[in-house]
Amino acid sequence: MVRFKNRWLLVELLPCPTTTSAVPDTTSSNEPELTSKHIWSALKQTVIANFGDIGWGAVSSSLTIKYYSPTTNVCIIRVARDQHPIAWAGVTLMANIEGRRYIPNVVHLSGTIKQAQMAAITHNRAVIAQYRAKAKRSASYHDSYNDFLQSSTQEIEALRD
């Protein structure tokens, strides 16, 4: 029996501001919310544009978006071990998703889903701490982010290979 070996990419999609303000405002946007299907489709187009059909053929059978959080713009991508450089390059070269500009940032690369889960939970906590710091709230302040952290942690821990 042969085991398929994968790599797990933890990617943060940083939205580019569309107005002249320095901080992007995603709360008042009339645009539809980004989903994992949109990310997969944009990644497919980027890989095809930069690596051709051969590059997409190598990556396509194992590429999946296992998790996406619209609150923190973090996603976990699974790809075969041998093809992870193509997927990583595709993520890095991805400039827009559904017409909106994003700066992709690969936060973590791991060989197991468990390590990707722990990195995603840690990263979500750091992003929420930054949101609270912008709002000038203490870490002990109870708000909707506490519920988000609890639900996202459960959702991430429920992921299976």
Rank of each mutant, 00 (worst) to 15 (best):
T35A: 03
I54D: 10
S29G: 02
V74M: 11
L34W: 00
V23M: 12
S28M: 08
P17S: 15
S36Q: 13
Y68M: 07
T26A: 05
T72F: 01
E31L: 10
I39L: 15
V47S: 01
A42H: 01
S61D: 07
P24K: 14
V23R: 14
G55Q: 08
T64I: 03
W40V: 03
S62V: 02
Y68Q: 05
G52A: 03
T26N: 07
G52H: 05
I54N: 08
I76F: 00
S21I: 02
S61M: 09
N30M: 11
I54F: 08
I77S: 04
T19Q: 03
P17N: 15
W56F: 04
S21Y: 09
E33Y: 11
I48T: 07
I54A: 09
P17H: 15
T72W: 03
V74D: 04
A49L: 12
S60H: 11
A22R: 15
L14W: 07
V74G: 03
H38K: 12
V74W: 03
C75S: 15
S29I: 09
S28N: 14
V23G: 08
D53E: 10
S69L: 06
T19A: 10
S28C: 10
R78N: 08
K44C: 11
A58Q: 13
Q45Y: 09
A42M: 04
P15S: 10
V59E: 04
P15T: 05
C16D: 07
I76Y: 00
L63V: 12
C75D: 06
T64L: 05
Y68T: 02
N50F: 09
I77Y: 01
G57S: 15
T20I: 12
C75Q: 05
T46P: 04
C16V: 15
P15H: 11
E31Q: 09
K44M: 09
S28P: 00
K37M: 07
P15V: 01
T27S: 09
G57F: 03
I77P: 03
A58T: 09
K44D: 01
I48Q: 12
T26M: 10
V59H: 04
L14A: 10
S36W: 08
P24Y: 13
T27I: 14
A22L: 15
K37N: 04
I54Y: 06
T27N: 11
S69Y: 05
A58E: 10
Y67D: 00
D53K: 03
T64K: 15
T20P: 00
V74P: 05
A49M: 06
V47G: 04
V23E: 15
H38Q: 11
I65G: 04
I65A: 08
W40D: 13
S28I: 13
H38W: 07
